[in-house]
Lab assay of single mutants.
Amino acid sequence: SGVNQQQLQQLMDMGFTREHAMEALLNTSTMEQATEYLLTHP
């Protein structure tokens, strides 16, 4: 699906929903950016 499943699982383990985590990974290129994205786009 174009996203790193390991990163997706890590974000879900942090408490984010699958949909939200996927959106973040699709819009960013690193785990750090994805986390930042999730925190700034709740």
Rank of each mutant, 00 (worst) to 15 (best):
S1F: 05
S1A: 14
S1R: 07
S1V: 13
S1H: 14
S1W: 04
S1Y: 03
S1N: 14
S1L: 13
S1M: 13
S1Q: 14
S1T: 13
G2F: 12
G2N: 13
G2V: 13
G2L: 13
G2T: 13
G2I: 13
V3T: 08
V3R: 04
V3S: 06
V3W: 11
V3Y: 10
V3F: 11
V3Q: 07
V3A: 07
V3P: 08
N4A: 08
N4H: 10
N4K: 10
N4F: 13
N4Y: 09
N4V: 10
N4G: 07
N4R: 08
N4I: 09
Q5N: 11
Q5P: 14
Q5Y: 12
Q5W: 12
Q5L: 14
Q5A: 14
Q5S: 12
Q5G: 10
Q5V: 13
Q5D: 11
Q6C: 08
Q6T: 12
Q6G: 11
Q6W: 12
Q6A: 14
Q6P: 07
Q6Y: 11
Q6I: 12
Q6H: 13
Q7V: 07
Q7K: 07
Q7S: 10
Q7F: 15
Q7Y: 15
Q7T: 07
Q7P: 04
Q7G: 06
Q7N: 14
Q7R: 07
Q7C: 03
Q7M: 13
Q7L: 10
L8T: 03
L8R: 00
L8H: 03
L8Q: 03
L8D: 00
L8E: 01
L8G: 00
L8V: 07
Q9W: 09
Q9Y: 08
Q9P: 01
Q9C: 07
Q9N: 11
Q9V: 09
Q9I: 10
Q9M: 12
Q9R: 09
Q9D: 09
Q9T: 08
Q9H: 11
Q10H: 10
Q10A: 13
Q10I: 14
Q10K: 10
Q10E: 09
Q10D: 08
Q10V: 12
Q10S: 08
Q10W: 09
Q10G: 05
L11V: 03
L11A: 01
L11H: 01
L11Q: 00
L11D: 00
L11E: 00
L11I: 05
L11T: 00
L11G: 00
L11P: 00
M12E: 06
M12I: 12
M12S: 03
M12Y: 03
M12F: 03
M12T: 06
M12G: 01
M12P: 00
M12V: 14
M12D: 01
D13I: 07
D13A: 14
D13F: 06
D13V: 06
D13P: 00
D13T: 08
D13Y: 06
D13S: 12
D13Q: 12
D13G: 11
D13E: 12
D13W: 07
M14P: 00
M14H: 05
M14E: 04
M14K: 06
M14S: 05
M14I: 05
M14W: 08
M14Q: 06
G15I: 00
G15M: 03
G15Q: 03
G15S: 03
G15W: 01
G15D: 03
G15E: 02
G15A: 03
G15H: 03
F16G: 04
F16Q: 02
F16P: 01
F16S: 03
F16C: 03
F16E: 02
F16I: 04
F16L: 02
F16D: 01
T17K: 15
T17R: 11
T17S: 14
T17V: 11
T17P: 15
T17N: 15
T17W: 06
T17F: 08
T17D: 13
T17C: 08
T17E: 13
R18P: 06
R18F: 09
R18M: 12
R18Y: 10
R18E: 10
R18V: 08
R18N: 06
R18S: 08
R18A: 11
E19L: 10
E19H: 11
E19Q: 11
E19A: 11
E19M: 07
E19V: 08
E19K: 08
E19F: 09
H20A: 14
H20V: 12
H20P: 05
H20Y: 09
H20N: 11
H20K: 12
H20D: 09
H20I: 14
H20G: 06
A21T: 04
A21Y: 00
A21M: 01
A21F: 01
A21K: 00
A21E: 00
A21N: 00
A21W: 01
A21V: 15
M22G: 04
M22Q: 08
M22E: 11
M22S: 08
M22A: 09
M22Y: 11
M22D: 02
M22H: 08
M22W: 10
M22K: 07
M22V: 13
M22R: 07
M22I: 14
E23L: 10
E23H: 11
E23P: 01
E23M: 10
E23A: 09
E23T: 11
A24W: 01
A24D: 00
A24C: 02
A24M: 01
A24S: 03
A24L: 01
A24K: 01
A24H: 01
A24Y: 01
A24R: 00
L25D: 00
L25T: 02
L25E: 00
L25P: 00
L25F: 04
L25Y: 03
L25G: 00
L25S: 01
L25R: 00
L25I: 08
L26C: 03
L26N: 08
L26W: 07
L26P: 00
L26K: 10
L26D: 05
L26A: 11
L26Q: 11
L26H: 08
L26I: 11
N27Q: 09
N27D: 03
N27K: 11
N27V: 11
N27F: 08
N27H: 11
N27S: 09
N27E: 05
N27G: 05
N27L: 10
T28R: 02
T28G: 03
T28M: 03
T28N: 05
T28C: 04
T28W: 04
T28I: 01
S29N: 12
S29Y: 08
S29G: 08
S29Q: 13
S29I: 07
S29D: 14
S29K: 10
S29E: 15
S29C: 06
S29R: 06
T30G: 05
T30D: 08
T30Y: 02
T30F: 02
M31Q: 04
M31S: 02
M31G: 02
M31C: 02
M31N: 02
M31T: 04
M31R: 02
M31A: 03
M31L: 15
E32I: 06
E32V: 05
E32P: 04
E32F: 04
E32K: 07
E32H: 06
E32W: 05
Q33S: 06
Q33Y: 03
Q33G: 08
Q33E: 15
Q33I: 02
Q33F: 03
Q33T: 04
Q33V: 02
A34Q: 01
A34T: 02
A34F: 01
A34D: 02
A34R: 00
A34I: 03
A34H: 01
A34M: 02
A34S: 01
T35R: 15
T35H: 15
T35F: 15
T35P: 05
T35S: 05
T35L: 15
T35N: 05
T35V: 15
T35E: 14
T35K: 15
E36G: 03
E36C: 06
E36P: 04
E36V: 05
E36M: 07
E36N: 06
E36I: 07
Y37F: 05
Y37P: 05
Y37N: 05
Y37H: 09
Y37W: 15
Y37L: 09
Y37S: 06
Y37R: 03
Y37C: 06
Y37V: 08
Y37G: 05
L38G: 02
L38D: 03
L38N: 02
L38W: 05
L38S: 02
L38T: 02
L38P: 07
L38R: 01
L38C: 03
L38V: 04
L38M: 05
L39Y: 14
L39H: 15
L39P: 08
L39I: 10
L39M: 14
L39K: 15
L39V: 08
L39W: 12
L39S: 14
L39T: 14
L39G: 12
T40P: 04
T40I: 07
T40V: 07
T40G: 14
T40E: 10
T40K: 09
T40A: 14
T40M: 12
H41P: 06
H41G: 13
H41L: 14
H41V: 08
H41N: 09
H41A: 08
H41K: 07
H41Y: 14
H41C: 04
H41I: 11
P42F: 15
P42E: 12
P42I: 15
P42A: 15
P42S: 15
P42Y: 15
P42W: 15
